[in-house]
């Protein structure tokens, strides 16, 4: 377990900013407690400093998770957000997309969001922008990257893709092994 290097921080924040923009500040400067990002086994964990200090007692091999896992660095040095970060992403999301009830299951099985399933969308969402997917009753379902801007969406035919799938909560079932 160690703090992120400057290079890693840059890559990680770049990715994070795609989804929550400048709200990253809120993750770091919290009124209740000091929180920090820690790297362990190539995964980035977001955890309060108190818990982090207590967890230093635990050996490197035995420590498997602390706080909330945000994602992991790939072998090529890129960062991949995991579905486990959804709680925080949803809290600070800049662009939101709501899918209709009939689109919930297709998305949770790992498919892209189609125009036909699009319920609502944040206005002025640009193209290729990270966005959080919600169900119509505001339960976050996952996140993805927009394929079209809001204005382009209007002209799209029903089978056209609106959001490229990145991660969805169905992964808790499908990919329990890979989350670790």
């Amino acid at each position: 377990m160690r703090p992120l290097t400057e290079e890693e921080t840059k890559v990680f924040f770049q990715k994070l900013a795609q989804y929550i923009g400048r709200n990253i500040v809120h993750l770091i400067n919290r009124p209740d407690d000091t929180y920090c990002f820690r790297l362990h086994n190539n995964r980035v964990y977001y955890v309060s400093e108190k818990i982090m200090k207590k967890a230093t007692c635990i050996g490197r091999d035995q420590l498997l998770s602390l706080g909330v896992c945000f994602g992991k660095f790939t072998k090529t040095g890129k960062f991949r957000l995991h579905i486990t970060s959804l709680d925080y992403l949803a809290q600070y999301a800049k662009y939101k997309i709501w899918v209709k009830p009939n689109g919930e299951m297709p998305f949770m099985y790992g498919n892209h969001v189609l125009k036909a399933h699009l319920g609502r969308i944040t206005e002025d969402t640009p193209e290729h922008q990270g966005a959080i997917i919600y169900s119509m009753n505001d339960v976050p379902l996952g996140f993805g990257v927009t394929a079209r801007s809001t204005s382009d969406c209007r002209k799209l035919d029903p089978t056209g893709i609106v959001v490229f799938h990145q991660a969805d909560i169905g992964e808790y079932l499908r990919g329990e092994e890979t989350l670790l």
């Binding site: 207590k54 007692c57 635990i58 035995q62 498997l64 998770s65 706080g67 909330v68 486990t84 329990e176």
Partner: peptide, 29 residues
């Protein structure tokens, strides 16, 4: 692995997951 998946799914933020034999415990922490 199931523990980690479950605590993340349930939105638990104060957990530390470790893999010891329970009998080592007072020595670890």
């Amino acid at each position: 692995k199931a523990v980690i998946a479950n605590i993340h799914r349930l939105g638990i933020k104060n957990a530390v997951v470790c893999n010891y034999d329970g009998r080592e415990f007072p020595n670890v922490i």
